[in-house]
Every structure is written in structure tokens, then in C-alpha cells.
Simulated assay, not measured.
Amino acid sequence: MPSTYIDLNSDLGEQFGIYQLGRDDAILELVTSANIACGFHAGDPSVMRSTVKKALQQGAAIGAHPGLPDLAGFGRRNMAVSPQEVYDMVLYQIGALAAFVQSEGGKLQHVKPHGALYNMAAANKKLAAAIAEATARFDSSLVLYGLAGSALIEAGQQFGLRTASEAFADRTYQEDGSLTPRHLPDALIHQPEQAAAQVVRMIKEGKVRTVQGSDWTLQADTICIHGDGDQALAFSRHIREALITSGIELRAIGRTDSI
């Protein structure tokens, strides 16, 4: 059944060295969960530590955001990787971020793959199983985030993990429930009003209108808002306000307190 509360997550800690990206401090004031880059597609040890600390100060639930080893492409380019390689790189990245979380007195809550790895695992059952197994072997209490209706959600359930079906505020959908590839001109939603209306409908009705004009039924446990666009902060504020105005509570997965 459609929810009356929702987790609002954002991909953060995606700076690297002197290169800055996103508005992490401001975004952390708006979301309930933070997916923190683990060094492969973005992030470095210092960025990981500081982002974890800021997330804990804001009371956001923290998740590892493992990606493909592709700094130049920001982890958004497909790579020919085997399930064993995916298992190894995901386990490596979860462990790295968990060390920073533990050292700051927190506890890792979830795992959400990034970019191309996320999309590959949404369709490829073997890669999805590799991610789910790495997560479960590290800590079976972790929540696995994945695209609603995807192979990754199915794999997580098969490995006994709690899963969170994710929907996107600023992305359009294809008629098979997949996200429109970023290289296509209609992949992103640029108007905050349109994005907010899409999010509210996904939560309350469990449906999203595809670019082909049909409705796709989906479960939305968590909504992703991207923090790296030019208008990301204004966009995020508008969506948050629309959710609250619509009577939808903001609550991290597994928590009973709303913000």
C-alpha cells in the first residue's frame, strides 16, 4: 500500500581532494538519510570522515554508496566487471565507510550502489546477487536500497536483507520501470513543481507516469534527491515542502521518529 511517510535520501560526500561537488551541508538539513561515497567513484578518506561526522550531527541515517572504480567518469560509465569483482569492490567500500562511522560513534544503516553499478544491478541478477551477498556477509542487519521492482531488491530479499525500494524525484521512467538513460534529453526533470508532483503521486498512489505516457506501478520506500545539480538545493527544498504540505511524514528507514 502507498505510504504516508517516506525516507528522503541524497548521495553525498562526492568531493575528491580539492574538487568540490554538491551542497552537502545544506542538503543534510533537508534529508533523513545520507548515502556517502566510498572512494571509488568519488570521495576520499578525509571527505568520508567529514561527511560522516556532519551526517551524524544532523541525525541522518548513514549508508555506504559504493560505485565502480571510475573517478573520471564519476561512476556513471558501464564497466565489464564480473560478479566476483563486484562482490569484492562492494565489500571493500562498505568496510571502509563503516570504519569511519564506527570511529565517530555511529552505526551504518544501509547500502545503496551508485550510478552505473546501481543500474547494472537493477537488471543483471548475478551482479545484484553479488551486491546483496557482500552486504549480507558484512552485516545482515543493513538495509539494501535499490530501484523499485528491480533485480537488486529481489536479490536483497533472497539473501535475507531488509530492502528499501527507491524512487527518484528528478528522473523520468521508461515503461518497463527502468530509469531513462542519462544520455537521452528527457532523462532529467528540471522543473521542481513537476518533480514534486511525481514524488507525491508515487508515495500516495504507488504510480509514476512514464515517458511513453503509461502508468507504472511501484513501491516507494525512499526517495532520492540529487545534490550535485546547479539548482539542487532549491529543488530539494521545494520537494521537501511539497511532501510536508501533502501530509507525508519524513522518516528514515527503520526509525519511528519523524522530522
Rank of each mutant, 00 (worst) to 15 (best):
T180I: 04
S214A: 15
L233G: 11
Y118R: 09
Q191F: 12
L127D: 01
A116R: 07
T217E: 13
L147T: 06
Y145M: 03
S178M: 09
V211L: 04
A155K: 01
L152T: 03
S140F: 11
G229T: 13
T163A: 00
G227C: 05
F159M: 05
T135G: 05
E205G: 15
L152P: 03
D139P: 04
Q194M: 12
T217H: 15
M202C: 11
G156L: 00
W216N: 12
A195K: 03
I203D: 02
R182L: 02
K125C: 04
D215Q: 13
I189V: 13
F168G: 08
V200M: 08
I223C: 07
A128D: 01
V208M: 01
S140V: 08
G160N: 09
A167T: 09
T217Y: 10
E154G: 03
H226T: 11
E166H: 12
S178G: 15
E205Q: 14
L218V: 10
Q157E: 10
L152M: 10
R137N: 15
G146L: 00
T135A: 06
P185F: 04
I203H: 11
A234C: 14
F138W: 09
M120R: 10
P185D: 03
K125Q: 07
F159Q: 06
K126E: 11
A164H: 02
R137E: 12
F159L: 02
A197N: 08
S178Q: 14
Q157W: 00
T180Y: 01
G206D: 06
R171I: 04
